[in-house]
Design a binder for these strands. Structure first.
Lengths: 192, 192
DNA sequence: TACAGCCTTCCTACTGGTAGGTAGATCACA
DNA sequence: TGTGATCTACCTACCAGTAGGAAGGCTGTA
């Protein structure tokens, strides 16, 4: 026996993949219902409203990301390698199509019409991701691994934008390889 | 008399601003109907289906962009200034909230569930924008205005990703100034 | 052991409202 | 007289969300 995921986790899994594909308005309770073989009403039992479902989903995603990035900083010594691992993660996700887009980047695009409880959580993810990148860049600069043109916070914003923009381009062109093609050249400027 | 926009153009205008706010699934014929004071059925007279409406909308957007970028290359001598004008255009749009996102970037995010006739047009926009940027960068490099680390096509992809990613960040943080903060630092690396 | 009460989960059946889209009449204008 | 634009009225399908009940598990009490 491998996966004994609870129903609510299955719901979140499906919802996340549907959001990644089509955004907040791009999925319905009926879609989830059909995907995991449960009635619509049962989903409302676990998540009374759609806004709540997505808010919980983003919380879960944020925590997974936070945990993963913290672990990366703890287990991988070099900031350069920390950055590389982070980028490889997304490259792999995009290549095997398991998670070809960041759910928060997707939702950020729809920000103006997102329920407040979702929007604030998406904002929080952007903030903590930017902070993590800034700390990695800062540590790397101190070790002379990176050559930064601006403050670490600025470079982190640029890097984050490049990552999300590269996801978008990769998706627009339907070319999974484009992500790493864009990002590796971009990172080369930092590390050289 | 100033604006004598036809009904179909008014429909496209509203639809575009609604898509920019919430994507393909984030607006309805009823929304447009309410916004311009016309019945839903009348919109169907001009655009029989939603897919067709958005396809025409993207065509119009592409043509406007193409015309604008061509004019820029014709009227502005320096590639460095051409690039700056392009970026200033978006900075202005984002600041005055008139068009705080590229409609094609928005749609690119929803690519997996877009009607084919829309998806192909979005792809085409990304291609021609990348080509324009590549040609500007290439011309600038020849005049020693830009220092490129890779082929112009590669640098163009990075720049395009940065622009779209910066739009996303700017929107996520609710900070119109973030766009140019990200982009100007990024461009500084090219021009120095 | 056995029963009683409660809780969680999932169900069927339904609501009011909105989605995209259609049929056919009316109006204005050439 | 015809043609395009708009209207009213309507369709079917789907939306998020609700009401109420059935089934099964857990716990406390006898």
């Amino acid at each position: 026996m491998k996966s004994m995921a609870s129903t609510s986790e299955k719901i979140l899994d499906i919802a996340q993949s549907l959001i990644v594909a089509g955004g907040y308005n791009g999925f319905s309770y009926a879609d989830i219902s059909a995907a995991i073989g449960i009635r619509k009403a049962s989903i409302h039992h676990h998540f009374p409203t759609k806004a709540e479902l997505v808010a919980v989903l983003v919380d879960r995603y944020r925590q997974q990301a936070e945990t993963g990035l913290q672990a990366l900083r703890a287990q991988v010594a070099s900031p350069a390698e920390q950055l590389q691992f982070y980028l490889n993660y997304w490259d792999t996700c995009i290549r095997d199509a398991s998670q070809p887009f960041c759910v928060c980047a997707m939702l950020a695009g729809e920000m103006p019409m997102l329920p407040d409880e979702v929007a604030s959580r998406v904002r929080a993810h952007f903030q903590s991701l930017a902070a993590w990148l800034a700390s990695v860049l800062s540590a790397g600069a101190q070790q002379d691994l990176f050559r930064l043109n601006g403050r670490p916070e600025e470079e982190a914003q640029i890097l984050m934008a490049s990552v999300h923009g590269a996801m978008l381009s990769s998706r627009a062109f339907g070319d999974p390889g484009l992500f790493i093609a864009i990002i590796s050249t971009q990172v080369a400027k930092l590390t050289k």
